[in-house]
Amino acid sequence: MKLDPRTKLFLAVVANGMIFTAPLVYSLLMVVVTSILLLLEGKWKFVCTFFFVYLGAAFFFDLAKNLDIGTSGTIVLASLFLMYRIMPACAVLYYVITTTKVNEFLACMSRMRISNKVTIPLIVMIRFFPTVFDESRAIGNAMRMRGIRLFSLRTLKSPVAFLEYRLVPLLVSITKIGDELSIAAVTRGLSAETKRTCVATIGFRWVDFVVWAYCIAVVVMFLLRN
């Protein structure tokens, strides 16, 4: 089922707002709609894993919340909280990122009369998070093969050197990726000062209206309760 990118953005904004500011029940309401949309996209494996981890984190957080667990416990508790509070937001972002093509997003932003100066960094940043993690993981593996680990005597002796070993290859790698991305963007005419056209058809359909109505209903419910 194909949603308009503007509907996806609205869903992301409302879901994040509810997840971070409203009580848990509103967060769950947003989780439900996102899960249904993900299932309709055929991502049932992601939905199953998400629910398993999410409910597990919520259960253990609830269990450990009232215990006096000290500093190390605070770190575990905060990690569990982040998991069960941030995971719904990640699920929404996963849905938006994996189902929206760059050209559709650009066309939709240009229809909303948002400048390229905001759109391009935003889209590059959203698309770049997985790349940063992938590159970091690959560099971590390479360093581990050379005996450079976070928890080792060598790192304790010279933490700056460890930072250099991990950060410099990452920066070199992503700078090169960035240069290639800029060249690709210029080649595709992103720097042209004329109005861009888009092959993909974007527009509102009945599904979009259903999602908009659902989101507005959740927001109204929250505002009336407060």
């Binding site: 940043m125 963007a185 720097s191």
Partner: peptide, 16 residues
């Protein structure tokens, strides 16, 4: 062209 390069750099370094 340099503007696009700058904007791409903003996105990349923003993520980092």
């Amino acid at each position: 062209n340099t503007l696009v390069r700058d904007l791409v750099n903003v996105g990349i370094f923003g993520a980092l």
